[in-house]
């Protein structure tokens, strides 16, 4: 069985530290008022950005589970 430092620790670090960069970016574009919440297209962009983050998180999660248990 692979060690914690090879399986879950990189995953936690990737989405923890990477998540800080991502959320920091989202806060920055919100503060700069680049995305207008009144516009439908801009709301879609915002949710697409969040979707992308969780999409990659899910891919890595499934791949780790497959490596460990399949």
């Amino acid at each position: 069985m692979p060690s914690f430092s090879h399986s879950w620790l990189p995953f936690i670090y990737l989405y923890g530290v990477g998540g800080i960069f991502f959320i920091g970016g989202m806060i920055l574009i919100k503060k700069a008022k680049i995305l207008n919440p009144q516009k439908k297209l801009d709301r879609r962009w915002k949710w697409l950005l969040y979707f992308g983050f969780f999409y990659y998180l899910a891919i890595h999660l499934i791949m780790i589970l497959a490596a460990l248990y399949w």
Partner: peptide, 10 residues
Amino acid sequence: WFFMPIFLFG
């Protein structure tokens, strides 16, 4: 993906 918000919208 982490830098996509500031790349695409900044």
